[in-house]
Design a protein around this nucleic acid. Sequence first.
DNA 1: CTATTATATTTCCATATAGCTATATAGCTA
DNA 2: TAGCTATATAGCTATATGGAAATATAATAG
Lengths: 112, 112
Amino acid sequence: MAIESSQLDTAFAALSDPTRRAILARLTLGEATVSQLMQPFALSQPAISKHLKVLEGAGLIETDRDAQRRPRRLRPEAMKHIADWLEPFRMLWERRFDNLDRHLASKMQKEK
Amino acid sequence: MAIESSQLDTAFAALSDPTRRAILARLTLGEATVSQLMQPFALSQPAISKHLKVLEGAGLIETDRDAQRRPRRLRPEAMKHIADWLEPFRMLWERRFDNLDRHLASKMQKEK
DNA sequence: CTATTATATTTCCATATAGCTATATAGCTA
DNA sequence: TAGCTATATAGCTATATGGAAATATAATAG
């Protein structure tokens, strides 16, 4: 285990659960309360609250306040942080030429 | 827990570990053997092999074969899959206007 | 003040994961 | 063949995680 758990660790971990990804997708439509976020799932309310806590711990959402409701909203900057980490890999999947080059290079290597 | 563990589940889970992210970063430079991949880490060889298994299970890398060596290489398509999932969120972090709009909208809402 | 609504926290259980050490397997090389 | 190198697998431990049920807290309504 790493000494320090970076923001990326917790963010990626948070995204590894389909319920949490669905919650984030729902929040792209705007703020939503816990009750609203629960609705699509066959999960208990505490389970949803736990997921929300994970998402908030990862910095992916934040909590608002409206009477006894605690609406959540996205923090897109955190998503950007993740996208930024992926950026160096982009050229590897976008450039057909590079893939071809690598293929040919390894072929040549095998043929000594 | 979800019934089916999607490719995204395992991919995000794989990315949640800093050792594995470092391994992927190393692999952007090209194929590397287990011994080479171990080198930067204070981890046992089995620990690295386990990480590689996780990465391969997530479809993020694949294994080649060279005598008794088992060089790993990236599968950038899997990374693209992840980037694709992030895409719908991009406008939320890129467009200042949208953020401003949301801010104003929630302000107006509070003022009934 | 009491009841109701919305959400959070606690406790418990089952499973997953990261790490280690020890051992096994695969492929060379002499 | 024996021995070396590279890697994988097994077995174990400690910790983390997802879920449920029960309970607690917060805020509003009457």
